[in-house]
Amino acid sequence: MNARLEGMRNTAPPSARRRVAWPASLGGATGPLIGLVLLGVGFSLASPYFLSLRNALNVLDQVTVLGIVSIGMTAVIVVGGIDLSVGSVLAFSMMVMGWLNQDYDVPLVLCIVAAIVVGGVCGAVSGLLVTRARLPAFIATLAVMSVARGMANILTDGQQIVGYPDWFTRLSTVRHFGFLSLTVALVVVLVIIAGAYMTFRAGGRNLYAIGGSSEVARLAGIPVRTVTLLVYTGCGVLCGVAAVALASRLDSSQPSAGLGYELDAIAAVVIGGASLNGGVGGIAGTVVGVLIIGTLHNGLNLVGVSPFVQQIIIGVVVAGAVTFDTLGRRNR
């Protein structure tokens, strides 16, 4: 491989060398974007209900929670980590919010803050386990996943909490200006902030250095452990935010919520062009990945495909999307 690259260096035509360096967070997303468009075209032909503004807004509604969680997951994967605890942390944050509100009559606004703080604390615990106790991220977050799920159940002995005020459920149901619910607007804002941060800020660019090689990053003077800790904490905070959005959407808090979300989030990030080895990926790609997953579920439901066949199709699409991207990358 090395020889091949070295050999090409001397003789490659100048045009091939002049590829402009554009931040990885945008450049990597073209392949998945084509996939998303193809998916849209396919479903438009297969179902008369698919191609409408209302359905597009439905898809946005449906991916809010996954979208928020995936933003955090992108940062974690870019620094070369993984966070399996996102679904459980989401459930725990959600239960803390409901429990404080229902059992202790804490004003809902404070409960929302508490949910976000709890998410951040869980993320920080993962981060400390990774950076200080030096556990592999997989194991550290697996442990946090189990603990958080347990805590979510303990708060109410496994009962769900129902009955939030109307204004709270309206956050996710009322579409302002005819199209934008507040939760969807929140996702859009978070995506823009995270995307800009990871592309245009030194702190964000440092994540790519750490994921590319933590030793190189450390020798370049980047505080690797601190940044890694902050990334996991940030991911936890976003889980807390996602918990609030989900509670609003479900009008309840459930200790079993978020089961398996970590896998959807990882899939979205990887479909969006990130590498589980770290150092590659970006928010734009992740957004496309999230939309591919959302569109897939939505479209298959609209076409009326049997649930068992749906599972097969989703698996094939995920494998196909990532294979396509990897092959494309190799040929580049």
């Binding site: 990885a24 790519y208 250095a209 590319g212 090689s213 030793e215 190189v216 020798l219 150092g279 590659v280």
Partner: peptide
Amino acid sequence: QQGLIVQHSL
């Protein structure tokens, strides 16, 4: 391994 991230750009 310590000086450069070879899969990243110059």
